[in-house]
């Protein structure tokens, strides 16, 4: 119990941050027209690719002779990058189509 309270106390800043970010997410997303649901989901998908930063940190920590960690970390970097790059490119492709075309009349 003591440890649990200590853990919460030590991370109070992060916990505040977490709660405010949750509320922010809800706020940002309300009132979205249905036509943007798919691009929005795809864009959000790309944003959680920020997990690749964690993969990079893990790789930086890995000791150079621990091959198992290096291999797993490498895979994590590749997959995280796929998530980020693929996500943003696909979203851009979707949104490119919403561009207003000059009207011919």
């Amino acid at each position: 119990m003591e440890d649990l309270l200590n853990f919460i106390g030590d991370n109070m800043e992060m916990i505040y941050f977490l709660i405010l970010a949750i509320l922010l997410g809800v706020e940002v997303i309300s009132n979205v027209p249905a036509i943007l649901h798919t691009p929005l989901m795809s864009g959000a998908n790309a944003i959680h690719g920020v997990v690749v930063v964690g993969a990079i940190i893990v790789m930086l920590h890995a000791s150079p002779d621990n091959y198992a960690s290096l291999i797993v970390g490498f895979l994590a970097v590749v997959m995280g990058t796929l998530n980020v790059v693929g996500g943003f490119v696909v979203t851009d492709r979707m949104l490119e189509m919403f561009k207003k075309k000059p009207k011919k009349s």
């Binding site: 992060m14 922010l24 997410g25 998908n45 959680h48």
Partner: peptide, 10 residues
Amino acid sequence: LTGGILVGSA
């Protein structure tokens, strides 16, 4: 944390 939680709640 922001990126993840934003997407989590959104």
